[in-house]
């Protein structure tokens, strides 16, 4: 195979893969901004107004945890909060619209915190989330 042919074929394959993935998940293309939350008595407070219309996930950052927390609040589902720390080597996880990935050894988790792909073997740490009229309250105790 000639060099030019190889590069051409490779580029076409990559473009096809990228196009395929884009088509497969066009609806899920949106940024995932970070919300810097306040902490009060072992609770991280996230105002419901922090979620823009249509947003179902928020990366929550606070002084109380070493790692960010992914707050998932989908309609008709109980809100849940996942510690974004890989259960393999405690590496910080990178969120996407379908789950969380660890770039250190490739572990993948779904939005329930369950392992999709190892080497991690344990689910992500979850925090209980309660709500009031204005806020989501991530409880750092009693988990």
């Amino acid at each position: 195979m000639k060099r030019r042919d190889f590069i051409k074929t490779g580029c076409l394959a990559c473009a096809a893969m990228a196009a395929g993935s884009s088509l497969a998940s066009l609806q899920s293309c949106s940024p995932m901004p970070v919300y810097k939350a306040t902490v009060d008595q072992h609770q991280i407070i996230v105002p419901k107004t922090a979620f823009l219309e249509g947003e179902t996930m928020k990366v929550v950052r606070s002084s109380a945890t070493l790692y960010d927390i992914l707050l998932v609040a989908k309609p008709n589902e109980e809100p849940r909060a996942l510690l974004m720390s890989c259960t393999h080597f405690s590496n910080a996880l990178v969120p996407n619209t379908n789950g969380l990935n660890c770039n250190l050894h490739g572990s993948q988790f779904d939005l329930q915190g369950a392992v999709i792909n190892g080497p991690a073997s344990k689910a992500l740490k979850k925090f209980t989330v309660s709500t009031n009229e204005q806020n989501y309250l991530i409880n750092l105790k009693n988990n």
Binding site: G20, S21, S22, S25, T97, N98, N101
Partner: peptide, 8 residues
């Protein structure tokens, strides 16, 4: 890049 079930 992670997107849906893809890792590219």
């Amino acid at each position: 890049y992670y997107r849906g079930g893809f890792r590219l």
